[in-house]
Simulated scan of single mutants.
Amino acid sequence: MTPASVTAFCPGHISGYFRRVDGHDPATTGSIGAGIVINEGVTATVRLSPHSSVVVRVRSPEGTAREISRTSPPLSFALDRLGVTVAVETVCRLPIGAGFGLSAAALLATLSATNRLLALDLGADAIAELAHETEVIFRTGLGDVAACQGGGRVVRTGPGIHGTILRSFDLDAPVCAVSFGPIHTPDVLGSPAQMAQVAAAFPQRQPKNFMEFFACCREFSAGSGLETPAVQRVLAECDRQGIPAAMTMLGDGVFAYGERACDALRPFGEVYGMGMADAGVRVESAA
């Protein structure tokens, strides 16, 4: 029996450093870099409907889901590409546009749920390819879809969803973050001057462990021209306490690692606690 609704979840991704790679089409365009796939992300519930609609909600610390939008051009585009109509509701806890890879997570969760609901028989690669193409076209991300296909601390050495990805599952302590607001990703990704500075700051070595990962992230953010004064203050305090930390890319915020990380970030604003995800997108229920 065809279910009336399907719910899927996709983890987010915090990027620590990246470099844009321009290909000859969206499939070969993307980025290389490194980050952490996190166990916070986006839950998408998709229902049968004669007309497509999207509702975006953010869940408060008290558990209330507040509606923030009734439109999502990337989601609408992806559904149109599939030639389907469904009603979509996405829910997340982390702030949108703040460097947590939530646009990629929303696409992967929505497309995975739609695939199951309508029995489209799409494979994981086909879903990821459409999600990645959508991200590139809307300039909402370059490497998050590739990362969110699985879990772990990731190092991406090739662009697109078929590029080489090295996954290390070496983060068993909390990952915490503080955000001071969004950085408008399309402005950064669409600026040749900013992209040139970002490319020049890209680390020349591949991190072998999480400490080297954070060191590479810090070198990158310092040289990229993206650090804000608020980010610099938080990073200085984390350095003082000996806590590994870096800037969220692309977002005006900081993520830190370890048992003392949340306490170190607390004086600077609302702290979002999470951990490393051990897997990528998954369908959670069908009813």
Results as ranks from 00 to 15, higher is better:
82 L>V: 09
265 L>R: 06
7 T>Y: 08
218 R>K: 06
41 G>L: 08
151 G>V: 14
156 R>A: 00
172 D>S: 12
44 A>R: 03
4 A>C: 15
198 V>R: 09
258 G>L: 08
58 V>F: 02
76 S>T: 15
195 M>S: 12
33 G>M: 02
218 R>F: 02
86 V>H: 02
234 V>W: 11
26 P>E: 11
56 V>H: 09
100 F>H: 04
265 L>T: 12
71 T>Y: 13
170 D>Q: 04
188 V>F: 14
178 V>M: 08
249 M>N: 06
282 R>L: 12
168 S>C: 15
201 A>E: 07
83 G>W: 11
279 A>Y: 11
32 I>H: 06
192 P>F: 07
232 Q>P: 05
58 V>R: 05
287 A>W: 10
93 R>D: 11
142 L>Y: 01
8 A>T: 12
267 P>N: 08
230 A>H: 10
92 C>Y: 04
260 R>K: 13
255 F>Q: 03
183 I>V: 15
117 L>A: 07
246 A>H: 08
245 A>Q: 04
118 L>K: 01
22 D>F: 14
39 N>Q: 09
201 A>C: 08
109 A>I: 06
57 R>D: 09
108 L>N: 00
71 T>W: 09
64 T>R: 00
153 R>M: 12
106 A>K: 00
18 F>R: 00
270 E>H: 10
129 E>L: 11
142 L>N: 01
248 T>S: 11
235 L>Q: 06
34 A>G: 14
182 P>Y: 02
22 D>I: 13
113 A>M: 02
26 P>S: 05
144 D>S: 04
89 E>T: 15
110 T>F: 08
27 A>E: 13
49 S>Y: 01
258 G>M: 01
52 S>L: 06
37 V>Q: 03
35 G>E: 05
251 G>I: 09
155 V>Q: 00
246 A>D: 07
9 F>Q: 03
5 S>Y: 14
137 I>Y: 12
64 T>V: 13
147 A>F: 10
194 Q>Y: 11
22 D>P: 01
76 S>M: 14
224 S>V: 14
141 G>N: 02
163 G>V: 04
262 C>P: 10
154 V>K: 08
7 T>E: 00
28 T>D: 10
44 A>M: 00
176 C>M: 04
67 E>S: 04
75 L>A: 02
155 V>T: 15
161 I>L: 13
53 S>T: 10
220 F>E: 00
177 A>S: 09
208 K>R: 15
